[in-house]
């Protein structure tokens, strides 16, 4: 099993990439709203993603269960 430092060093860049993809997807949505002068009729998927990020940004996850919580969150919201 990896040490804490090795875990960060191994997966940081991939996580950075994945966060950039999420950021770009949200930007893409905003650009589409600007082009079309209207929001999506159903924005629940966007809100679901934003709520998921709130879960991730909570400081403490004593059970290290972020992925499980997100799966439950997505099951409830989309």
């Amino acid at each position: 099993m990896l040490s804490p430092q090795k875990t960060l060093d191994t997966y940081y860049l991939e996580a950075r990439r994945d966060l950039l993809e999420v950021a770009a997807m949200l930007d893409r949505y905003d650009q589409a709203v600007k082009r079309n002068s209207e929001k999506a009729q159903d924005e629940s998927k966007r809100f679901s993603l934003l709520q998921a990020m709130e879960i991730l940004s909570e400081p403490d996850h004593p059970r290290a269960d972020r992925a499980e919580r997100l799966l439950k969150h997505f099951a409830e919201t989309s």
Binding site: L13, A24, Q31
Partner: peptide, 17 residues
């Protein structure tokens, strides 16, 4: 690049902007 530079989707976002 797969990880460390621009991605195909982000590149198309830039092409559109």
């Amino acid at each position: 690049y797969p990880v460390t530079k621009c991605s195909p989707r982000r590149a198309v976002d830039i092409l559109e902007k």
